[in-house]
Simulated scan of single mutants.
Amino acid sequence: MSDTKQIRIFMTGVGGQGTLTATTLLAKTVLSQGLPVTSGEIHGMAQRGGVVESTVLIGCKSPKIGHGEADILIGFEPMETMRALPYLKCDGLVLSSTEFMPPLSVAMGKQECPTIDDIKKAVAGCTNKISFMPSQTIGLKAGAVQAGNIAMLAALCASGELPFGPEALEATIKANLPEKIQAVNLKALELGVAALNA
């Protein structure tokens, strides 16, 4: 297994978005491919609106991601994408939602919220491997706003950055999610792949 390419994935969002579900599904997909994986929650606040950060590391000995070490940054909320940029490796891949779910501090007017253009500029200053998508809108189109996270995972699997494609994620969804939510998530998967290629 020592020849497994090391891939460090940093995921960030806000509570109530399903960031940890997405982390678990991605880790299970990696495992299903016979690859060594470590996943963890760095900083999680279960209540809605709190920042949630998690990691999925493929073929890595250390379970941590330091600044400048993430090969891939997935931001389920654009402000959190911007906040997590220090973790990104130079020229790493950024997949980010364009739709805000402002944290409490912004909702209460204690903090300014950057515009999506500010965020796109900040990301472009770090890498040119960037994909933005309206994940909540995609999730709603699939049937549930949280399914937007699955759409983003699907886009990641279709990006060519991982040693497997969207069909591996599809098999994991079928094997691990309750039947009643499978259809929504499989639709989100299809829409996520389409959004990446749009």
Rank of each mutant, 00 (worst) to 15 (best):
T19H: 13
K120F: 11
G125F: 11
T23D: 10
I9E: 06
K64Y: 14
D117E: 08
V52Y: 00
I72E: 01
I65P: 06
Q182L: 11
S62P: 13
K28V: 15
T172H: 12
I138F: 07
A124W: 13
G13E: 12
C90G: 12
T29N: 02
T24C: 14
P63L: 01
A151Q: 04
L186S: 10
Q146I: 15
C113F: 14
V106Q: 15
S54T: 07
Q33S: 06
P134S: 15
G160P: 03
P166C: 05
Y87Q: 03
Q47A: 11
N176G: 15
I173N: 00
E112I: 02
E161K: 15
S39D: 08
K174L: 00
S32K: 07
G44C: 03
M152S: 08
L95I: 06
L88Y: 03
M45E: 07
P86Y: 01
G59L: 05
K129I: 13
P178I: 15
G139H: 03
T115R: 11
T172E: 04
E53K: 06
T4E: 13
F164Q: 02
A144K: 14
T172V: 02
Q17D: 09
K174M: 00
A122D: 14
T127Y: 04
G59R: 02
M152T: 01
K180E: 15
L140K: 11
L31H: 13
V184L: 08
T172G: 09
R48W: 08
E170T: 12
P166W: 06
D118M: 06
P36K: 15
N149H: 03
K120Q: 07
S96H: 12
E170D: 05
V14F: 11
Q182T: 13
V56Q: 08
S97N: 10
L73G: 01
A155Y: 06
Q182I: 13
T127N: 02
E80H: 09
I74P: 00
A183L: 03
I116A: 06
L26W: 04
I130M: 13
G68S: 00
A46W: 03
T23F: 12
S159R: 06
G13W: 00
A188L: 03
L57D: 03
K121P: 08
T4K: 03
G66K: 05
M108K: 10
I58A: 02
L156E: 04
M11L: 11
M152C: 02
S2C: 08
L35E: 01
A122I: 05
G68Q: 08
N128K: 10
Q33I: 00
S159K: 07
S2R: 13
G125Y: 12
A124P: 08
G165M: 09
I65V: 00
E112A: 04
P134L: 12
K174A: 04
E41G: 06
L31V: 14
I65R: 04
V145H: 10
I150D: 04
V94I: 12
L156V: 09
G139F: 03
A46N: 11
L196M: 09
K141N: 07
G40H: 10
I65A: 05
E112V: 02
C126G: 14
A175R: 12
G75H: 03
A22N: 11
A168D: 05
F100I: 14
